[in-house]
Simulated scan of single mutants.
Amino acid sequence: MEQLKQSFDLSGHELPAALTKLIINLWPPFRGAGIRVTHLSADWRQAEVQLKLGLTNRNYVGVHFGGSLYAMTDPFFMLLLMQQLGPDYYVWDKAGHIDYVKPGRGTVKARFHVDEDLVSHIRQQTASGEKYLPQLQVEVHDQHGDVVARVHKTLYIKRKKDR
């Protein structure tokens, strides 16, 4: 444990992306649902998540359970933005909904990308201390590249006072 503490600073709440990926993949709700983070970039700009169809995430008609499709996308915009904006900001999921496009079979994936333009825009919108509610979207694709679902997320972002 001492070597782990020396490798990176654990006194704050920032963990390296590789360790965060490992922790998320071991988290019981994701593990039990078959959700796996396959990529989390070191710069916190990209994440890829996959969900293999199995007994724990199959619905009554044999396709991906909608709750698992939503769960696989739930924390990632928040996580990426928290890390990019840093500790001077509150970042929360405020709302979300999912549009099911077609039944999900086999392995499905979602790719998240948060670029510098979005981060700069958020900083501008929150510079005076006002909250900002960006609306973001990610698509869930099957192994053929077809859209299975579109997930719409609204985040709550606000710069902390005296920062």
Rank of each mutant, 00 (worst) to 15 (best):
R150S: 13
K5S: 11
K94N: 08
L133T: 08
Q3P: 07
T38E: 09
I122N: 00
G34C: 08
M78N: 08
K131L: 06
S128W: 11
Q135T: 14
A18T: 14
G96K: 01
Y89W: 11
R31C: 10
K94S: 05
Q50C: 09
V140E: 07
A71K: 01
H13W: 13
L81N: 05
W27V: 01
V140C: 12
G96N: 05
H64S: 04
D88Y: 04
S128I: 00
L51T: 01
K131V: 02
P16V: 01
A17F: 00
S128R: 15
K21A: 04
L10K: 09
R111P: 02
L79C: 09
R150Q: 11
A95G: 07
L26Q: 14
V147H: 08
V140H: 09
P87K: 13
D142I: 05
L22S: 10
P134N: 09
A127Y: 03
K94M: 13
G62V: 04
L79N: 00
S68Y: 06
A95D: 11
D117I: 10
H13V: 07
A33W: 04
S120A: 15
A149M: 08
M1I: 15
K158W: 04
S128K: 15
T107K: 14
L53D: 02
H152Q: 06
S68N: 05
Q124K: 11
T107R: 12
Q3H: 14
I24H: 11
Q50M: 12
T56S: 12
L10D: 06
Q3S: 11
M72Y: 02
R31N: 10
Y60D: 10
E116G: 05
A71I: 03
V140Y: 09
F30K: 00
D99Q: 15
G34L: 07
G104V: 02
R159K: 15
R45W: 03
F65Y: 10
Y132E: 02
I23N: 05
V138E: 01
A149Y: 01
